[in-house]
Design a protein around this nucleic acid. Structure first.
Lengths: 249, 249
DNA sequence: GAGTTTTAAATTGTCAAACAAATCCCCCTC
DNA sequence: GAGGGGGATTTGTTTGACAATTTAAAACTC
């Protein structure tokens, strides 16, 4: 329907990229398959080589194909892995936070919801080495570091927690949300008291994880989320106050 | 680090695209800002216009910019919205399932985990119209339709459920997982008895949602997930058996 | 003078042709 | 037989030109 309304609205490059993408999705092109040469594709689609190149670059930007130069080179269908998928999830989430009208409350709620969801899995599957890694992060958080380091450690803490669930898809998605929330956390000025409070909750969370007590983990996560949200709100209020005083002054 | 190892490994188009992307991420370019013209960018970066065009097409493929022709046209920074984010999540997840070595069990586990996570939110926030929409889907599932229609309805059912949680980020992520799992579901040949079983569970799920009984919803979801997984496993076994007989015959 | 039509300018879209760079494969030399 | 060199193939990049599209100003009509 929409195609009929705008028959040629999309550029040739876009159309060709879409066609090749469909070929990949419905199996006509499998992983590591080699696409025809650029000149081949150009004659096949009835367009010029630069147009084909645009299409290929679009696909390359989505990590759908990789390109190698030279004889027996060409464009090959990429086998997408968890790592790449996570990167793409993160890129999307980052852009969403950076540019979109994002509601911090919704973001925090999403994080809490997802963390609560994986808590049972993590409780069941956590390894001893993850416990020590988490312990190290807590130690770092209790030391006197910069706000940025503290925040980065906080992010790492939750990433380890997520990895403990041993589900790559969940890890990839959670990582994107955790990554996305970092800019918000970076706004916060952490007072010593704040850090102590957070580190203490993390310690309790770690204990609950060690005890494989998922309900306790969820309760702590909820508590911690409320606290973080209040800090973010404080920071936002402070920022707004600064801006209004700047405008009036 | 990795950049030092391969200084010029990335093409010019890739590098320029990365630079512009950074400009967007760190705020030098805001939403709806207009980029310099292609010729301008070409001279500014010291490359030819086609190279710049490749970079722009890469960005366009990621929905970071939009392009308009004509006077006062040009390339503009896109404000990314929930809709577009969801599409990108879906594209990534779909590719992951289509091409990656994905473990169906992990996928099912992710879906169950996420659905369980949003169940409390959905129970709290569901609207009357969503209940009727779900009812309609169940009716459709009990009617005699093609397997594909049944499967599509199943997907729509869960999408409505996810929307009821009223958290756009969760919706976007969940939608991607639900979308990703569809190819797996499409493998299943639904017998009349299967359909009846599934529709009955859906009815129970709907009742629990109406009663705002999240724990009941989670129990039903878990049950339903086990059933679906068993069906998928059956389908896979059948497929494998077919292939081995094909090979030997 | 107001409204409409025409025209011109700016910008992206597409194409063509050529050369550069990288890579592989075959062949040739030692 | 082993190793290096050259040719062939393929992508990377540039130059130049023209087409298509859109805006806005200019000219024209009423």
């Amino acid at each position: 329907m929409s195609e009929a309304q705008e028959p040629q609205a999309q550029s040739v490059g876009h159309q060709i990229a879409e066609e090749i993408r469909e070929m990949i999705v419905d199996g006509r092109l499998g992983a590591d398959d080699r696409l025809p040469g650029e000149q081949d594709l150009a004659t096949r689609f009835g367009v010029s080589r630069p147009s084909v190149r645009e299409a290929l670059k679009r696909l390359a930007a989505q990590n759908l194909i990789r390109t190698r130069r030279g004889a027996s080179g060409g464009n090959f269908v990429n086998r997408i892995g968890w790592q790449q998928a996570r990167e793409q999830f993160e890129a999307t989430a980052t852009m969403l936070v950076v540019m979109g009208d994002i509601d911090p409350d919704a973001l925090a709620e999403a994080r809490l919801t997802l963390l609560s969801a994986i808590a049972p899995l993590a409780a069941e599957r956590r390894l001893a080495e993850e416990l020590t890694a988490l312990r190290d992060e807590i130690d770092l958080q209790e030391s006197k570091t910069s706000d940025e380091d503290f925040c980065a450690s906080d992010v790492r803490f939750y990433r380890i927690l997520v990895e403990a669930a041993r589900n790559p898809l969940l890890s990839a998605q959670m990582a994107s949300v955790i990554e996305a929330i970092q800019p918000l956390l970076n706004m916060i000025i952490y007072r010593a008291r704040d850090r102590h409070t957070i580190a203490a909750r993390h310690t309790k969370l770690l204990a609950a994880l060690e005890a494989r007590d998922a309900p306790a983990m969820i309760a702590i996560l909820r508590d911690l989320n409320d606290y973080t949200v209040s800090l973010v709100r404080e920071a936002q209020d402070a920022r707004e106050a600064r801006q209004t005083s700047k405008e009036s002054g």
